[in-house]
Every structure is written in C-alpha cells, then in structure tokens.
Amino acid sequence: MTKTITFNELRRIKDCLPDGSMHRIADELNVTVQTVRNYFGGNNYEYGKNCGLHIEPGPDGGIVVLDNTTIYDMAMSILQEENSMAEEK
C-alpha cells in the first residue's frame, strides 16, 4: 500500500519519535538503522538502503510517496504508545 504525505510532515514524525525509535524499528525489521534514517529523508546509501521513498518537488518540502508503509506504520504506533503513556500520567 502506498501513502502520500509532505516531506515536512515526514520529518515532523521523525522528530517526534522518542530516543531509540530508529534502533527499535531497525531491529524489528532486521534492517540497518541508516536504512530507517534514509526512509525519513536521510541520504546515506553506503550503509543503508532505499526503502521505497520518492520525493517530488512541491509545497511544504515536497511530496513524498511511500511505496512501503511498514516503517511509517511502526513510527505511528510508537507515537501512539507515547501518547497513551503520557495520558496515563
């Protein structure tokens, strides 16, 4: 399933993730941490792979088409966990 969002929205999601989230996602998917970083707009392909991220010029940093939403879905689950824990306090 594909998803289309803005680049700035993708970066906001990354910036809201708690410390260790990149490692957690990488470990669960058996990929390198750099591959997860590349998914969120990084560009180090020497140590990481491209995970189906396509950026087109446009407003709000450009339009991003995610061919595979697995990392995005995991990031959103982590953010929901964080929100739930914050509400319980």
Rank of each mutant, 00 (worst) to 15 (best):
T69E: 10
T35Q: 07
Y72A: 01
V64N: 02
T69S: 12
L66D: 00
I25K: 01
L29D: 03
E82M: 13
V31L: 09
I25H: 02
K49V: 03
P18V: 11
D60Q: 13
T32S: 15
D67C: 06
I71K: 02
F40Y: 10
I25Q: 02
I71H: 01
A26N: 04
D67G: 08
R24Q: 10
G48W: 05
G62P: 04
C16Q: 15
T35H: 06
A75T: 04
G52I: 03
G42S: 07
D67V: 03
C16A: 15
N44V: 07
Q80V: 05
N44P: 01
E46I: 14
N38M: 01
L29K: 10
D19S: 14
G20K: 06
A86T: 10
Y47W: 15
Y39Q: 00
E28P: 00
E81D: 13
M22K: 02
V33Y: 02
G58I: 09
V31G: 03
C51G: 05
V64R: 03
N50Y: 12
P59E: 14
L79P: 03
L79D: 04
L10F: 04
L29F: 05
D15M: 15
N30E: 13
Y47M: 13
V65R: 15
M74H: 09
L29Y: 05
A86L: 14
A26P: 02
L66A: 04
D19H: 12
E46K: 15
D60F: 11
L10S: 00
L17F: 07
L79W: 09
N8F: 06
N44E: 10
P18T: 11
I13D: 01
A75H: 03
G52E: 07
R24A: 07
G48V: 02
Q34K: 12
M74Q: 11
N43M: 06
T70R: 08
V36I: 12
I71L: 05
Q34D: 06
K49R: 07
D60M: 08
Y39D: 00
N43I: 02
A86I: 11
N50W: 14
Y72P: 00
G42D: 04
D67Y: 10
N68C: 09
M74A: 07
D19C: 05
I13H: 04
N44Q: 08
P57D: 11
V64T: 04
K14H: 14
D27N: 13
H54N: 13
E82P: 00
Y47L: 14
I63M: 14
A75P: 00
E28I: 05
H23S: 12
P18N: 13
G58D: 07
E82H: 08
G42Y: 06
I78N: 09
S84L: 14
A26G: 07
G41S: 06
M22G: 00
